[in-house]
Simulated assay, not measured.
Amino acid sequence: MPRIFLLLRTLLPSALLGQERPPTPVIVAEVLEQPLVEDLSFVGRILPMRSSRVAAETEGRVLRRFAEAGQTVRGGDPLFELANDPLQASLAEAQADFELRKLNYDRSRQLRATDAVSEQDLRDDAYELARAQAKLAGLQAQVEDLFVRAPFSGHIIQTFTEVGQWVGRGGEIAQVISIDTVRVYVDVPERYVSQLTLGDRADIFVDALGGDPIAGLVAVILAEGYASSHTFPVVVGALNPEGRMRSNMSARVRFQIAQPQTSILVHKDALVSGPLGQVVYLARDGKAVSRPVETGLAHKGYVAVTGDLAPGDLAVVRGNERLMDGQAVRILRRQP
């Protein structure tokens, strides 16, 4: 009996050794250390870069309307024509007065060459001519202003008068906006606003349009915020050559803010949920080594963690679902 027990004792380890599980094939990704970029998104409103309530520079009765609300106009196009009969009569009188003063001056200059008039008489006629010319130019400008024109190329949003109505000087005629360039207004919490600077890139998402984000730049950071919400208005500008973004559309703006300190980052697939929390398995010397971690911010597929990890460690990202601490592993490849 002792001899049989000794034989079994000798052969048993060899049998068990032959039944060991082969190393588990895994894919790994390197643990990184770098500043973490935090994604922040805020909902805002799209407004045109330029918006003008066009006013009449000269009073008059609306004679004609050249464009309707909703139409596109070019800068300088007439929107309305006003009529002002007393102004037209004053212009005709000023034109006649100017022609008379010019004749008087020309005659005085010829007579002065023969000493038929004094130098003072010539200067008086020159003054009267200049006065008449200035009055004529002023009235010509007022008559020209009877055509109310678009201040820039854009879209007519609203008109405020009708044919036959009297419009006073400074009275609003129409509202014109330009959306070749738009601005998105968002309210940013005060704890983040100091981390933004003019010219920072931002991504604009318009759900109504779908598709890829639209590139924008931080154009304005207001110095005064809202006491009730502890937020500050931030304006993001973007080109809109096709006019797809429209005034008052809702938009979501995403900022990417770099954190001042570096963080240990692991690929999101390296995190395994266990009974005691999150675990990362490292591949070291052909073995799986478990490391409990606390997770933080996430960015572009990586997650900031705290735990016993170091830059350059190889974290298992595939094949880690059923790993155990100390289990043999075989690295198939490194994931970039």
Score class of each variant (00 low, 15 high):
R322K: 11
P22S: 12
Q110N: 13
G70I: 06
A219I: 01
G18Y: 02
V188G: 12
P336M: 04
D207S: 10
A137M: 08
E144R: 06
V182L: 09
A238P: 11
A126E: 15
R149L: 13
I264Q: 08
A208L: 09
P311S: 09
S14C: 09
P311Q: 07
N84T: 08
V143K: 02
I221T: 08
R65T: 14
N104Y: 03
V279F: 06
V54D: 14
G76H: 07
T114S: 15
S290E: 15
K135D: 15
V193K: 06
I173P: 07
T10P: 00
G211F: 04
L129C: 08
T181L: 03
F255L: 08
A15D: 07
A132C: 10
P35F: 00
K135N: 15
A223W: 00
V148Y: 02
Q327H: 06
R53F: 07
R112Y: 05
L6N: 10
D187V: 00
R322C: 01
K287D: 14
L282A: 10
G170S: 09
A208G: 15
R183A: 09
H230K: 12
E59M: 06
A208V: 04
P213L: 02
S263L: 01
K135M: 14
L6S: 12
E99T: 11
I204D: 13
D269W: 00
F66S: 14
L217W: 01
Q110L: 13
D308R: 04
E93S: 12
L79C: 09
E294H: 05
Y105C: 08
L91H: 04
R50E: 15
V289W: 01
E162I: 00
V329Q: 10
L276D: 15
G237R: 09
A270G: 10
G154Y: 04
A15W: 07
A223M: 07
H155G: 01
V266D: 15
G243R: 04
L139Q: 13
A132K: 03
E144F: 00
G225D: 11
